[in-house]
Every structure is written in C-alpha cells, then in structure tokens.
Simulated scan of single mutants.
Amino acid sequence: MRFVTHSADETEALGERLAKTLHGGEIIAFTGDLGAGKTAFTRGLARGLGIPMRVTSPTYTIVNEYTGGRLPLFHFDMYRLGSSDELFDIGWEDYLQRGGVCAVEWSENVADAMQGAISVRIGRDSDEQRTIIIEGGGLDADSGI
C-alpha cells in the first residue's frame, strides 16, 4: 500500500491507523534516511495503541519501552548495530515473546531477524512530503489502514 503524507502530523496519523489493526507480536521494520519520519510514524503507532508516554528516538539507548496502552510498544534503533547477532545479544527474542509491537528503525542493519515483519519504507520527497509504502505481515488493501 502506498501513501503520501504532507506533514509530520499526517505521518503520525498513518502510524495511528496502522496501530489500530495490530494484535500484538508484530514487527514493524522501518527503512528510510535520517529525518524521513520513522520516529514520527512510531509516535502515531504509540497513540493508536493508547500509550500516553512521550515517544523519542532510541538512538543512544537502542530500545525504548512504552506501556500503558492496549499493547506494549518496543521502539528499537538499529543504526549503531553491526549485525543481527548484536540484536540477539540485547534480548530480541525476549521482546518478541512479550506480545507487544516491535517498531524497528534501521531494520536493514538486522534484515535477517525481520522475517514476517510489516515493512514500512519512508521516502522523503521534500521537506514536508513523504511517500510511505507499507507491505507484508499479512496486510492487504482491506486491512483498514
């Protein structure tokens, strides 16, 4: 599915719509350049899951955990990881077993751990406009996004 957003608010709203289709156990695998809108999309995911906490980029912590909604959200940033082995070293399998949603920025750095993920590719067309392609994970045009 292809979407075009024209502001950070619209990107967040798309993330919120996706969140409302999730049941737990999903991996959202983001790709996109710096400043493309991955964290904005994740803020929308959190809002759609009913999480009241402020969402920030986990660049220096690797993972931020958000609770208080209908599902927990685990927000990963793989920018500084060199391989999937490092991901498994920080307890990736434990996060998967907790039944929440794993939102993974820079997922291409750990691609072999992203089987079955919902792919969210964000392209920056201009300062405000983004093209966002969402596919995989069993989603189709009838998914309600």
Results as ranks from 00 to 15, higher is better:
76 F>H: 00
83 S>V: 08
93 E>D: 15
23 H>K: 15
80 R>M: 04
74 F>C: 03
75 H>M: 05
42 T>E: 02
80 R>G: 05
93 E>R: 15
69 G>L: 11
81 L>G: 06
93 E>W: 08
36 A>K: 00
73 L>Y: 02
30 F>W: 04
30 F>S: 00
53 M>R: 15
26 E>G: 02
32 G>C: 11
90 I>D: 02
78 M>I: 11
79 Y>S: 03
84 S>Y: 09
20 K>T: 14
76 F>M: 04
76 F>G: 00
91 G>N: 15
46 A>S: 04
36 A>H: 06
72 P>T: 10
43 R>T: 04
56 T>G: 13
40 A>R: 12
22 L>T: 00
50 G>D: 03
21 T>L: 14
55 V>I: 12
32 G>E: 03
68 G>D: 08
63 V>C: 08
44 G>M: 05
48 G>D: 03
20 K>V: 09
81 L>Q: 01
36 A>G: 10
81 L>W: 05
62 I>M: 14
46 A>F: 00
60 Y>K: 03
51 I>N: 07
59 T>E: 13
78 M>C: 15
82 G>P: 00
91 G>R: 13
86 E>L: 07
26 E>S: 02
57 S>G: 12
38 K>Q: 06
21 T>C: 15
86 E>W: 07
28 I>R: 00
58 P>K: 03
46 A>M: 00
29 A>W: 02
37 G>A: 01
73 L>A: 03
46 A>N: 07
58 P>A: 04
90 I>Q: 09
76 F>K: 01
81 L>A: 05
55 V>R: 02
80 R>W: 06
24 G>T: 07
64 N>G: 08
92 W>P: 05
59 T>V: 15
77 D>T: 08
22 L>R: 02
63 V>A: 03
52 P>E: 02
29 A>S: 11
63 V>Q: 09
35 G>E: 12
52 P>C: 00
60 Y>V: 05
62 I>Y: 14
70 R>C: 13
53 M>K: 14
53 M>Q: 15
66 Y>M: 12
21 T>N: 09
31 T>W: 06
80 R>A: 05
64 N>H: 10
24 G>A: 03
20 K>A: 12
32 G>W: 05
33 D>A: 14
32 G>Y: 09
87 L>A: 03
51 I>H: 03
74 F>E: 08
65 E>S: 07
72 P>Y: 01
